[in-house]
Design a protein around this nucleic acid. Structure first.
Lengths: 331, 331
DNA sequence: CTGAAAGCGCTTACAG
DNA sequence: CTGAAAGCGCTTACAG
């Protein structure tokens, strides 16, 4: 266990004092070029790495941001990648924590993180209790990205109701008159939002709805929804809560002997990597998760610096990707 | 920005010294019950939270472990969940970092992390250069989990060759005599390992192989492999590098008018959440990723404590899940 | 241009 | 049973 090399060791080797090492390496003080070179060489020789914890204690700036996310059901990486890139661009290191439990447990954990003295800011990708901002230490910035719900399903910004409305309108234009919504789990902002928009849109357009079923983010929910349908349900257009549910729907339809999209049109959400390769390929909604993550991070950093939020670049709502699973109903 | 409350503030309110606060709260010294209660009450009133960075500096124990992972192609969460649970059970907080780049860039980043003074140990889920252990500070434990390759594909422990051999043997038992392997990207331990075992197994069993193609972890690789096949290729059994590739294979087969599993049997790897719901559902290899993550973490912690590795519980190799995509070749 | 000193918030021997 | 003191490794006024 070789003792870790400190700025004192560098100072000794360079024949200067610890303060000079600090100034020379940071480029802050007024240090002669000759001394600076000598210090740098000594640091190089010893393989000196400043202790960030010590620096953090003295400067009270850790240069670190904690990111909190829920237990993800599917790949949330693109959003983290966006946030991480934004943080890095601004000189912050981002660390990811996972939190579980209900909103109160999660909120308590976030307050604990914020108070640990290890972070300058906390960005939450899960919904938090309204008392969190007040409970977070005053010198720690805090922001909840409203774009994601408890399991990293797109919500808020990303769950923009638009796509559901647009999906139904386009399917109606294709000739569909009968719909079914296989929803995600109740209580999730994304699921609830889509249910709301589905309900209002079918009512507004005056088309038939066989109801809202499922209420689970599973393939079984989709398959079961098909099994429960009457034989004369088709022609039918089904809005599934996400691609996994939609794939369950397609399987359930196949079991019933219904063809997709001949008898049943199906749409998903989230554009899984497998979705373009399904047979038929799956119409879905693609969200700019990386963009949302990046935006959230940049807003947080602006807060930290007391700046205004950056120009609100358009938060592109879900973009619909039309594929083979949707078509005009068979005559 | 309310000043953060420190142990000194608690001491003042409780009418004791800072040292007594530390002893009272940690339960370490010999403190009278009455004083302890008074200190605890004061801490409670002030909402005192110890500064972990300061504690870390003094004790030289951060209680934190950095986990490094590659940019994942598919959901790696189950493995992190296993590692995180094991860390938590031993009283460590785990933080996740993502690293990118080639083996040298990754290794440099890991050495940097290990030297940051913020972690007691580093667990890498990506392959690292052999010089990393020597470059890591002596008081930081380091372990590479050999179970995962650069993009979190199961490798090493998880990539156990067994399943490929078992898949082929069982397919031969079903009557298959002609095989094709759509491999993952060259240079990935998991991909290369499966190619090796595929090649040797078809040779050993004396069955025909149409070759090893693809060499990419994409759906297109699977679909393209089908498009390139001669019309008389079926009956054929296809070992795909993972479920995404297999789904591409199934689509490619459908485009050719070949039925699965009637004309073509298909196997994947990783048991995607959608795979049981495909039509036909996909035969695949399911790895105990959470278990592998947990094992790696417990080994690392044993290293940190100078203990022997825990009983090597069986590292269950991939478990084959037979589903509808595999069947005897059509007569 | 460089050195001596203080202090970030904690824990831990050491006195008493 | 509790207090006074040192020190983890760094940075930053302040002298000189």
């Amino acid at each position: 266990m070789p003792g870790r090399v400190t700025s004192r060791d560098v100072a000794r080797l360079a024949g200067v004092t610890q303060a000079t090492v600090s100034y020379a390496l940071s480029g802050k003080g007024s240090i002669s070029a000759e001394t600076r070179e000598r210090v740098k060489a000594a640091a190089e020789v010893l393989g000196y790495q400043p202790n960030l914890a010590a620096r953090a204690m003295r400067t009270r700036k850790t240069g670190r941001i904690a990111v909190v996310m829920g237990i993800p059901i599917y790949n949330p990486v693109s959003m983290l990648a966006g946030a991480g890139a934004a943080a890095k661009a601004e000189g912050f290191a981002m660390e990811v924590h996972s939190v579980d439990g209900d909103v109160n447990e999660r909120s308590a954990r976030i307050v604990e993180l914020a108070g640990s003295g290890q972070y300058e800011a906390v960005l939450s990708f899960v919904p938090t209790s309204p008392m969190v901002p007040g409970a977070v230490p005053g010198d720690v910035s805090f922001l909840t990205a409203a774009s994601f719900d408890e399991q990293m399903h797109a919500a808020g910004e990303l769950a923009d109701a638009g796509p559901v409305e647009a999906l139904i309108e386009e399917l109606v234009a294709l000739g569909h008159r009968r719909f079914l919504h296989v929803a995600g789990e109740r209580g999730f902002a994304s699921a609830d939002g889509r249910v709301r928009v589905y309900t209002s849109t079918v009512a507004r357009l005056g088309v038939e709805s066989l109801g809202v079923v499922g209420h689970a983010w599973t393939g079984d929910a989709g398959a079961d929804a098909m099994r429960a349908l009457p034989d004369d349900a088709p022609p039918l257009a089904i809005i599934a809560a996400n691609d996994l549910v939609a794939i369950g729907v397609m399987r359930g339809a196949a079991e019933r002997g219904w063809s997709v999209p001949g008898d049943v049109s199906v749409t998903g959400w989230d554009n899984y990597d497998v979705s373009p390769f399904l047979w038929p390929s799956l119409t879905t909604v693609d969200n700019d998760r990386a963009g949302a993550g990046s935006r959230a991070m940049r807003r947080l950093i602006a807060d930290m610096r007391g700046q205004d939020w950056p120009e609100t670049e358009e938060s592109t709502p879900g973009r619909i990707i039309w594929r083979e699973s949707t078509a005009p109903p068979r005559a």
